[in-house]
Design a protein around this nucleic acid. Structure first.
Lengths: 159, 159
DNA sequence: TAAGATTGACCTATCAATCTTC
DNA sequence: GAAGATTGATAGGTCAATCTTA
């Protein structure tokens, strides 16, 4: 392992910070402007919609959306108020609680998804040259995995 | 401009989110564990140290560290409490206020920098193959710049 | 009237403690 | 006692309003 940071490496690290900040900011603004929905809501809707039955235990949901458990409790509170998800107890383990997509939640996702996809194309994918997307995905996935966030799920602190 | 998102593009975008989250988390934890300093303090110390005289107007500092003006006021409040920076009025424009590195701030940066650099090597640079750093810096800088965050400075909302 | 900085009100995240169930 | 979820206390951020100076 090298003991010094090359200029390219430092530039890459700084560019990662800037690119991330810029993208999150613009995508969130567009989603709020078009659909009055914060990115956090969108992430939860997408994550639930990818599961069978549109339901997930609170802990699992928190891990996939990179949030603490208590943070997820509060995020789901807000989404329940907005009518997008419901809560459901699980018969097998009565400690547990499910977050479940409501029909309104599915409808909201259906409307929000084109807005988000267009934003990702416009602000991110459009600036990649042929082959760069694959290369970028490869590199960043390797880094994420090496630091404990493989593709499928993730662990996150919180109580 | 394409109207659909390829799988590679979507994977790259998701990997960017995960890599960023993982890196920020581990680097912040290490800096706090070793130096009891949050990453935000570190960024301010580095930014000030790169200027002539170790001083910068509050607005300039906010722009470079990607924070709103009010956010920077509060961050500097905490750093003044910690003894790392001071405030100074500027004689030319008495509306303005400078944040200035104190000797203790310079000393804190001197101790924190090796910790941070080691973390960036260990968790980021170490996983890049030869040439990848340059490629990554190039790609991400292009995206950041296209979205309004060129290398030098940045604009940020806030009042 | 506008610009720089701060303050007030509020939002959303975390950590630690708590409640319920296993 | 341990695990899932929630709640209380608190940290740190934004926006809108305010104060001072240009």
């Amino acid at each position: 392992v090298a003991t010094t940071l090359s200029d390219d490496e430092l530039q890459a690290w700084k560019a990662l910070i800037r690119a991330h900040a810029a993208l999150i900011e613009v995508l969130e603004q567009e989603l709020i402007a078009d659909r009055e929905m914060p990115l956090a809501f969108y992430e939860v809707l997408v994550t639930l919609s990818e599961t069978d039955g549109g339901r997930l235990r609170m802990s699992d949901l928190a891990a996939r959306v990179l949030l603490s458990r208590s943070g997820m409790t509060r995020l789901v509170d807000r989404m329940v108020d907005a009518g997008m998800v419901g809560r459901d107890t699980c018969p097998a383990d009565r400690r547990g609680s499910y977050a479940v997509l409501t029909p309104a939640g599915r409808a909201a996702l259906k409307r929000a998804w084109p807005v988000h996809a267009r934003g990702v194309i416009e602000h991110f994918a459009r600036h990649l040259e042929p082959g760069e997307a694959r290369q970028l995905a490869n590199t960043l996935d390797r880094i994420a995995t090496a630091n404990g966030r493989p593709d499928g799920a993730a662990s996150c602190g919180g109580g």
